[in-house]
Amino acid sequence: MSNVVLLALTGLGLGALYFLIASGLSLIFGLADVLNFAHGLFLAVGAYGTWWSSAHLGFGFVPAVVFGVVAGTATAVLVEMLLIRPLYRRTIEQVLVTVGLSLAGVALLQAAFGADPLTFPRPEWATGTTRIFGAIVPNDRFLLIGAAVVVLAAIQVFLRRTRFGLIVRAGVEDRTMVTALGINVRTAFTLVFAIGGAAAALAGALAGVYFGNVSPGQGTSLLIFAFIVVVIGGMGSVTGSAVAAVLVGLVQQFTSFYAAAGVGEASVVLLLAVVLLARPGGLAGRAT
């Protein structure tokens, strides 16, 4: 029983991390058709921003995370405005540019901070454990799950209750129509990049807490699983991403524990194959 609780909470924590990355990816893909490989870079900027402000500016944990998130958001907005926007409607080129960015950006971080993992500043309370139903659960799991729930709620409120959210939702459904109605979708592009960048940067900071260290390549490996989550959940759907993230996190944790290391990843890939063959549009996708 205690094993099950621990595995479930760890799986949910991992799922929370995937969701934070996948939600932005999904929105960006849904609205702008850009498969954003630079998302791993936003994540890394968030992680290194948090680490740097804590190590060099002496920030506490929360201000350091805020600093990291602001840095990640700023990077995302700059990337959208300077590099993605000029290639409007040329989606293959946009994807290629984000691929180039992810290569160059990770290399730049490696040049600045070194290739070795750096020890991440973890707050006192995140290193402790809590007993739940007989299981000893590290506190950082709750931090991850809490952050993901807050972000999910915030994105939902933004999408359902604000005017910009309405434009984003309409743009995901049918961008041509929204443009034809005289609404400038490009502002919404910048907005989804900002939201995605902020969520990814937060994921970077929290991944630092979860893994205990930060390295330049960390974003890339997390990004692959986030891509899988986006595809399983259905491109463009934030709720779908949330469901898929929980599913992938749980499947990965339970199979790794009860079978063998590596089987967890294999079952995630299997899950992807099964979902795509049964519902090519993903869980939230319309059946075609």
Partner: peptide
């Protein structure tokens, strides 16, 4: 960092 130079070169080419 070779990948930095190559990544930038790649973006410029695109």
């Amino acid at each position: 960092e070779p990948l930095f130079v190559l990544g930038v070169l790649f973006i410029v080419m695109v």
